[in-house]
Simulated scan of single mutants.
Amino acid sequence: MRTVTTRAGVYAVLTDSAAVVPPVPDGDSGGVRWLRAAVARFSNGDAHARRRALVLSELVDIDEKSLCDKAFAWTRRIVADAGPVLDVMTVIARRVPVGVLAEALGLPDVSADIAVVARAYHPHVEPGPAAEAALARLVEVCGGVADEHAAARIGLLIQACDATAGLVASALLSGSIADAEPPVRSTRRVVGGEIVALDLAAAKLTFGAGAKECPGRGHAVALVMGILAALRGFRVVPGEIGYEPSVNIRVPLSLPISRESSVGGLC
């Protein structure tokens, strides 16, 4: 499989209307394989356009400043009850973005179930009973019907889980969101019948490009900015960092931070 690493090369493939994502097989209604086959991320053509429009319709009325403020408030409440050292991945990065976005969508805090399904979301992962059970609960919360509308909401929250958590970690490690490395390291496209790997990290295309560019870019940045503002006065504890065993996303297993002062600012 050929790998494209240059920014120009990756951008060219992402914006090529003839380049498509590798298809995923259909699955039983309501299962993880059904979710993959029903979301915009793994779709092409008219199905992708229709499903992306559903995602955009969910985001259009969500104010980014409000997301930032709520992420700040959620994070400040968490750190107020924490000890001198806390694992930002466990208690903040995977929880706050999903919880805040779920609330904005009129849903309860489903961050625990979203985290379970996110680990089985990609086609190379075999979904287990825990992921199937968590997805069934999510479908119920999203209206009780395994349709494209429910899939759009669940897929949106999954994106807010792993990718946003990775962006939080990268921003903390680099010192700013502007210097953060893309948490989604790679993606694939079928070009002329050949599967091509695209190195998003090397190309520094954090949110992709073209028809599949992240539809919630501004919302994700707002969530991360709120969290980072609430964590001013904290520093990453030095030490070796282990990462999730994923082929396409870079998310620390844990990232301890310690309190240096009580300084914090609003978005």
Results as ranks from 00 to 15, higher is better:
residue 230 A to E: 12
residue 230 A to L: 05
residue 220 A to H: 08
residue 212 K to I: 04
residue 230 A to F: 00
residue 225 M to A: 06
residue 211 A to W: 00
residue 219 H to D: 00
residue 223 L to A: 09
residue 229 A to E: 13
residue 214 C to N: 13
residue 221 V to Y: 00
residue 222 A to S: 13
residue 213 E to H: 12
residue 231 L to R: 09
residue 224 V to I: 12
residue 226 G to K: 00
residue 202 A to Q: 14
residue 209 A to F: 01
residue 220 A to Y: 00
residue 222 A to F: 06
residue 221 V to N: 02
residue 210 G to R: 00
residue 210 G to I: 07
residue 207 F to M: 07
residue 225 M to Y: 01
residue 208 G to C: 02
residue 229 A to P: 03
residue 206 T to E: 13
residue 202 A to R: 15
residue 214 C to T: 14
residue 211 A to V: 10
residue 211 A to N: 11
residue 201 A to E: 15
residue 225 M to G: 07
residue 230 A to G: 08
residue 209 A to V: 05
residue 216 G to R: 04
residue 202 A to M: 09
residue 222 A to T: 05
residue 225 M to I: 12
residue 211 A to F: 03
residue 202 A to E: 15
residue 204 K to Q: 15
residue 210 G to N: 06
residue 206 T to H: 06
residue 225 M to D: 11
residue 204 K to I: 02
residue 204 K to S: 10
residue 204 K to F: 05
residue 215 P to Y: 00
residue 208 G to Q: 10
residue 230 A to V: 11
residue 222 A to M: 05
residue 221 V to L: 12
residue 211 A to S: 14
residue 218 G to C: 03
residue 220 A to R: 10
residue 231 L to S: 09
residue 213 E to C: 04
residue 209 A to R: 01
residue 229 A to N: 11
residue 206 T to C: 04
residue 205 L to S: 09
residue 229 A to H: 13
residue 201 A to Q: 14
residue 211 A to C: 06
